[in-house]
Design a protein around this nucleic acid. Structure first.
Length: 305
DNA sequence: CAAGGCTCCTGATAGC
DNA sequence: TGCTATCAGGAGCCTT
């Protein structure tokens, strides 16, 4: 389940293996994968042909690739999405949804476009969007006029993520105090803070000794600061583990950070001892999913919600 | 306008 | 054995 760290790993893979290449053709194998592109598959493919990928950017869990006509290919991995760089001759994945081919090929560089270094290695590969559960997808959008980040217009409501140098802790705290909601809901609200999903929310709350149902209005400034510190720590730790996978070709840009089995303290650890106090970790149904927490370290708020 | 709930989807797994 | 129920869950959209 890709959250910010996994998506950042994907972004780095794209930066290394896809940026600078010119799109030759796009094949949409499942319409749902481009459902956010309302003009449809043919339009999506037509408008990308001949465009050069200028950069690979990310905000929260969204990725986008600005192309040379002023638009960007927006990508979200959803729950099970992968972006893979594969040799053209590699067999199609079972859940391959979109294939992007480039003008460079194994046979040699395109005329007048000599390839060196990484570009030479990338030649002969294609970009594939693979997604079993089809919650993710690709689409093409104009940039918000005048936006310095080059944000696609449809994600203008997505807040900066906590690893963004321009993220404002003070503004986040003020927003929390103003909200009438609970802390885990707030952490998952991408318009307040982006990039946090169910797993890292539970991890950061465990580290902060905060119960998921704590009203945001009860958080003091130091508690917010501590929480943000733990959010950043857990994300950086995951990034450190997953950040090596983009080094090899066949970019594993699939969200497998390797962090899961090793380092999780709360998520998925029902009935296992809390690593701080030994109390069995509990799982509670929460918003059609689960919350994991230590009932001793993370006391529920006094006032029932 | 804010808050909360519903829904999309497929595959693994548990239970009968 | 083979069916059904449950769970995984991001985020747009709808309702209150």
């Amino acid at each position: 389940m890709p959250e910010l760290p996994e998506v950042e790993v994907v972004r780095r893979g794209l930066e290394r293996w896809v940026v600078g290449r010119t799109i030759d053709s796009v094949e949409v194998l499942h319409p749902r994968a481009i459902r956010r592109h309302t003009a449809g598959a043919a339009d999506f493919a037509d408008r990308l042909r001949g465009r050069r990928v200028a950069a690979a950017r990310r905000r929260g869990k969204y990725l986008w690739l600005p192309v040379t006509d002023g638009h960007s290919v927006l990508a979200h991995l959803g729950m099970s999405g992968q972006l893979l760089v594969q040799p053209r001759k590699a067999p199609d994945e079972k859940h391959l949804r979109v294939r992007v081919r480039f003008t460079d090929t194994e046979a040699g560089p395109a005329a007048g476009d000599p390839l060196t270094g990484t570009a030479a290695e990338a030649a002969g590969t294609e970009l594939r969007f693979v997604d079993q559960r089809t919650f993710g997808g690709l689409s093409l959008h104009p940039t918000v006029p005048g936006d310095p980040d080059g944000l696609p217009d449809v994600i203008a409501h997505i807040a900066r993520d906590p690893l963004d140098p321009a993220f404002e802790d003070a503004a986040f705290h003020t927003a929390l105090r103003r909200r009438r909601t609970t802390i885990k809901r707030a952490l998952l609200d991408q318009s307040l803070i982006s990039g946090v999903g169910n797993i890292y929310a539970d991890e950061a709350l465990w580290r902060s000794r905060l119960h998921y149902d704590r009203p945001t209005a009860t958080l003091t400034r130091p508690r917010t600061t501590e929480l943000l510190g733990h959010v950043r720590d857990v994300m950086r730790a995951a990034l450190a583990v997953g950040g090596t996978s983009f080094d090899s070709l066949y970019v594993n840009v699939n969200g497998e950070s390797g962090y899961f089995e090793r380092s999780l303290d709360a998520y998925g650890r029902e009935d296992e001892p809390c690593r701080r106090c030994g109390t069995p970790v509990r799982r509670r149904p929460w918003m059609n999913r689960s919350s994991y927490f230590c009932p001793r370290c993370q006391r529920p708020p006094r006032v029932a919600a």
